[in-house]
Every structure is written in structure tokens, then in C-alpha cells.
Design a protein around this nucleic acid. Structure first.
Length: 462
RNA sequence: GGCUGAAUGGCAGAGUGGCUAUGCACCGGAUUGCAAAUCCGUUUACCUCGGUUCGACUCCGGGUUCAGCCUCCA
């Protein structure tokens, strides 16, 4: 029985899909004008874990995550780079996909782009105007009348009057009410535009998601996710648009992931304190980054630091060390009581940190048995790999995982390492421990750790 | 100013009204030529002040501190 925290009610609730066995899920993706940073990675990974967990529970999941490929920042960046908007966006979409692959993020069922859904947006805006929830200004902009929608503020827990009192932004003179937000922006010179009943222009950000959600999931669906910062105004506005247009509840459950911080401050473009995924992958593997992110609860703040990534590396080393030498024989089955414990944690609002404890218990059990070849251990290893897969982890060959180095390949090759190990074995056999230790020290300088276990010497990167 | 959320051992991070989270680090032991890995054992907690209770880190209230949103933002 899956329980998830619903941002709308601010409570953990039993998850009940609209249609038995099926889940419709929409997650706000990114605006593609730059490389993804670790904050984006957290969103990808958190909802990827949810996607995997729902599938493991047997649901047929329709997971939609959009790409915003037209927006002020994109247009500005393209102009800066002296390239077209589509050149810029396709470049960063490719980069995003590469980053996701490195982090073992599964592709969503659908990944619609805003520019591919303009007609749907126009249709939705027309409907909102017909129903009296939106109006076109003289300059061709179209706005949503926030005051016309009763439930406005429900999702973000705000009252309209409080928001008006807190208004600190210069008000657009075309708006009837300062709280109104734009659905369609009239064209400006040199910007991409599409024809519409209100003249050439382009869509506002919020309407994109309402339109894409509707075309892939219908007027009503189960889960809507995104970063915490989107709760207001983006999700509040999406909800207002869709519910006004369709007269029914938009999403039943709203989920928001917490932020990645740097020095206890939000990681963001505007603070210029962000680490891109590809930069981090120069020093750490995708799996280490993924572990770091899943190691804490998805709603809590997560402070980024190298010390944290180092700790993730050490933790994964322990897990892979336990798997080393074990067979991969899925037909021998898995140990259900570990799976039950794991499910219990995951069903509690994706308590991944607690679920990890099950993996470490398995590692500990395997180590205690000290018989990697036995059927008993094989079953435990199967269980570990299977549960690891539920989190998108532990799918590598253990030796490859322990010996692989992230990013740029440099230093000694595997063949050179093996040659030195052979020499050391010979020296030790001749009781020349001085030479043996010298070789071990030499390898340690290169970050290679030797382990003489059970009469055999193995190595890993430290 | 308004609205959220958070404060746990050296670090990270779960959780619970009375019973070992887990990982890393530390200490003692086993193992090892010495290490490493592994095993066994040990140590270190619950921001503050009140209240409820036989008993609170866990529930309630006040306070303090921190973060987020209110403007583009995962």
C-alpha cells in the first residue's frame, strides 16, 4: 500500500489511482538553454525512482515529462550565441539525455516539447476565454483572470489578498488585476512566433504544461510532480487553468522534490553556485551521484559537497564488495522478507534512506556467510541486485564497478596494474616483502588499493 | 512583512511514546608477513523552555536558529 505525501493536502495519503492498475504521471521537466546541474539531476532521479517503484508495484505507468523549448531565456541565449533557437535547444536536449543516461534515469513514456504542442495551447486558451476565465488585451497578450477561479491559492497555501499585499513587482499595464498571469505573449521583433486568434505570438510558460498534460494524460490524472520551487506560481497556475477549462480536478496528488543546496543555499543559475552534471561526472561516477541523491529523502534539503560524494563512493564500495565473486543466477530466486522490508520503506512516501538499510543488511549477511559461490549467497546476491535495480543501482559487474574510474581515463592501465600485481605475487612468494610492499605503495600512489583475500590478490580504485 | 518546511551522535541520514536504523569516521579484538577487505565488540544523539504522560528525541504550546516560496528557477 503506497502512501505519498500530497503537497495539496500537506499530508501523507494512501495512493489510489483513478483507474485500477494504471497511473498517469506528469512531471515538469527543464527549460533547455544550458547544461543540467545537480538540482535538475535530483528531479530526474527522484521521479525516476517513483516511476520504477510504481512499475515494481505492478502499475502500468504513463510517465510524461515535458521539455520547455521556447522561453525568454532560450531566446536570449540563442541570440547571445548567434544561433537559432532550435539549434540551441536540440543541443541541450541531447546533452540532457546523455546526462540522464549516465545517471541511469529511464526515459519517460512521453517527452513532449512545448513547440510541438502550440495548437493544443491555443485551443486551451480559447476555451478559457470562452468560459470567461481569460481575456485578450489590446496588445495581443492574453491573460488568465486569477480572481475568477475560486480555488486559486489552494496548492500553495496562499490567499489572494495576502499575495496582493505582498506584490512587489512592476505591474504590467495590460493586466486587469496584478495577479493575472500571461497565457499568450504577443510577438516581439526577432523572436519565434506562431499565428493565433490574437495575432502572432508565443505561449506563456504555465499553459504549456496544462496543454501537454491534457494531450497525453487527459483532463484528469494521478500524480503531478516537479521541484519545490514550481509549487508557486507554476503549479498553482497550471491547476487554475486546467481546472477552470475542464471543470474537474486536475491532478489528484502533487509531489515536490526538495532542493540541492551549496553551503546551505539553494543551488541555482541566478546564484551562480551550481555544479553541472557533466562537471561532477569528471570526478564521480553516475552511480555515485545517484546514490548521493537517493540517500536522503526526496523532500528534504540536500547539501552538495565532495565529502558527501566521497561518502557515497565508500558506501557503494561496500555494496559492490559484498557482490564480488557472487554468481548471477536469477532463476535461484530471491529472499522475500528483504523485499518486503524494502517495499515497506518505499511505500512510505519513498523512504529510500530506510530502503538502503535493507541493502546494507544484505551485504552484511553475504559477508558473514563468506561463501560467494554458495546457493544461499547467490539468492542473497540476487535479492541485492534486484532491489538495487529498483533504485537504479548495483547493475554493474562488481569488479568493473570497483575498478572503473570516472571521467577521464588516466594513470595506469589494467594491464600495467596486473603486471605489477604479478610481480608482487612473485616477490611475496619469495618472501621479498620489501619489494611487495614497495609495489603496493606504488599502486596506492595511483589510487589503486590491493586486497589479498583468500590467497588471491584483487584491486580496486580507492 | 505573509506563507511553508526543517533542527538527531565526529559527518551524512532514517525512525520511534518505553526495545541496535544504516553508511562513513573512531576505538578494542579476530584474520593478515604487514596492510587492505571482512567478521566480532565498544563508544558518541535527538536546538531551547514549558505542558500532557508511569515514561517524550518522539505528542501539544511558546521561543531560537536555518532554509524555501511570495520574481525566472528542478
Amino acid at each position: 500500500m503506497l502512501h505519498i505525501y500530497n503537497s495539496l493536502t500537506r499530508k501523507k495519503e494512501l495512493f489510489t489511482p483513478r483507474e485500477a492498475g494504471k497511473v498517469g504521471m506528469y512531471v515538469c521537466g527543464i527549460t533547455v538553454y544550458d547544461f543540467c546541474h545537480i538540482g535538475h539531476a535530483r528531479m530526474f532521479i527522484v521521479f525516476d525512482v517513483l516511476f520504477r517503484h510504481l512499475q515494481a508495484l505492478g502499475y502500468d505507468v504513463n510517465y510524461v515529462r515535458n521539455i520547455t523549448d521556447v522561453d525568454d531565456k532560450i531566446i536570449a541565449r540563442a541570440a547571445e550565441n548567434n544561433q537559432s533557437v532550435s539549434e540551441l535547444t536540440s543541443h541541450y536536449i541531447d546533452a540532457m539525455h546523455a546526462d540522464e543516461a549516465a545517471l541511469s534515469v529511464l526515459r519517460p513514456t512521453h517527452e513532449p516539447r512545448a513547440t510541438g504542442a502550440i495548437d493544443d495551447m491555443i485551443a486551451l486558451i480559447e476555451r478559457l476565454i470562452d468560459l470567461g476565465f481569460a481575456y485578450a488585451a489590446d496588445n495581443g497578450d492574453v491573460f488568465y483572470s486569477v480572481g475568477k477561479f475560486d480555488g486559486y491559492g489552494q496548492l500553495s497555501g496562499r490567499k489572494l489578498e495576502d499575495m496582493r499585499a505582498g506584490e512587489r513587482v512592476a505591474v504590467d499595464e495590460n493586466k486587469k488585476d496584478p495577479m493575472d498571469f500571461v497565457l499568450w505573449k504577443s510577438v516581439k521583433p526577432g523572436e519565434p512566433s506562431w499565428p493565433s486568434p490574437w495575432g502572432d505570438g508565443r505561449p506563456g510558460w504555465h499553459i504549456e504544461c496544462s496543454a501537454m498534460a491534457k494531450s497525453h494524460l487527459g483532463e484528469q490524472f494521478d500524480i503531478h510532480g516537479g521541484g519545490m520551487d514550481l509549487q508557486f506560481p507554476h503549479h498553482e497556475n497550471e491547476k487554475a487553468q486546467s481546472e477552470a477549462a475542464h471543470g474537474c480536478t486536475f491532478a489528484n496528488y502533487w509531489m515536490h522534490n526538495g532542493f540541492v543546496r551549496v553551503d546551505e543555499e539553494k543551488m541555482s543559475k541566478s546564484l551562480d553556485n551550481f555544479f553541472t552534471v557533466r562537471d561532477v561526472l569528471k570526478d564521480y561516477t553516475g552511480e555515485e551521484v545517484r546514490f548521493f541523491i537517493i540517500n536522503s529523502h526526496y523532500r528534504s534539503a540536500l547539501n552538495y559537497s565532495n565529502a558527501q560524494l566521497d561518502a557515497s563512493r565508500a558506501a557503494l564500495q561496500r555494496l559492490y564488495t559484498a557482490l564480488r565473486g557472487t554468481h548471477v543466477k536469477p532463476d535461484l530466486g530471491i529472499e522475500q522478507n528483504y523485499v518486503d522490508r524494502f517495499d515497506k520503506s518505499m511505500n512510505d512516501d519513498l523512504n529510500t534512506a530506510e530502503a538502503f538499510a535493507v541493502l546494507f543488511d544484505l551485504a552484511s549477511e553475504i559477508n558473514k556467510l563468506n561463501s560467494p559461490e554458495s546457493d544461499e549467497v547467490t539468492v542473497l546476491a540476487n535479492t541485492m541486485r534486484s532491489l538495487g535495480d529498483r533504485l537504479g543501482l548495483l547493475q554493474l559487474d562488481p569488479d568493473a564497478a570497483l575498478q572503473g574510474s570516472p571521467g577521464d581515463q588516466s594513470g595506469l592501465s589494467a594491464a600495467q596494474i596486473d603486471a605489477l600485481i604479478d610481480e608482487r605475487i612473485a616477490a611475496r612468494a619469495a618472501k621479498d616483502f620489501g619489494r611487495g610492499d614497495e609495489i603496493r605503495d606504488q599502486l596506492a600512489q595511483e589510487g589503486i588499493v590491493l586486497e589479498d583475500t583468500g590467497g588471491k590478490t584483487t584491486w580496486r580504485r580507492g
